[in-house]
């Protein structure tokens, strides 16, 4: 596997939530392994809630939208829900431009809200 400029970390939030933080660049090259690694965890843990933190994304093309909608479908099969958390400016622009901001639930400024 050739290295991609994208990293993924998982955090389990008992009882039934998972947070996936993606950072770096999401293109088609990166999306292939993102999809494989995320789904391995999802099918294993079967969470009711998946949060994808996208605050660390520096570049994303429409492959990132495919990744989001793909996980939306997996969560639906698992009977759970998907949230996109703190999209970085480039992610937000892409979601808006394509109208995908109306197809997924986006949570913004989650860190500020926690500290209040």
């Amino acid at each position: 596997m050739i290295k991609s400029n994208c990293t993924l970390t998982f955090e389990k939030n008992p009882p039934d939530s998972i947070t996936v933080s993606v950072s770096g660049e999401i293109d088609h090259h990166a999306a292939v392994s993102l999809r494989r690694d995320t789904d391995a965890v999802l099918w294993d843990y079967a969470p009711k809630k998946l949060t994808i933190d996208m605050s660390g994304i520096e570049f994303m093309d429409s492959s990132g939208l495919g990744f989001i909608m793909g996980r939306y479908d997996v969560m639906r099969k698992l009977g759970g829900v998907l949230f996109i958390r703190d999209p970085s400016p480039c992610v937000e622009k892409m979601l808006k431009l394509t109208g995908f901001d109306r197809r997924v639930t986006v949570i913004k400024n989650s860190k500020e809200r926690q500290s209040v």
Partner: peptide, 22 residues
Amino acid sequence: EPLYTTDAAGERSGMGFTVMES
């Protein structure tokens, strides 16, 4: 056309040309 894709299984979103156009 937005959302048109021949490769849904490959998780394409069908938004590539829309992005290029915008």
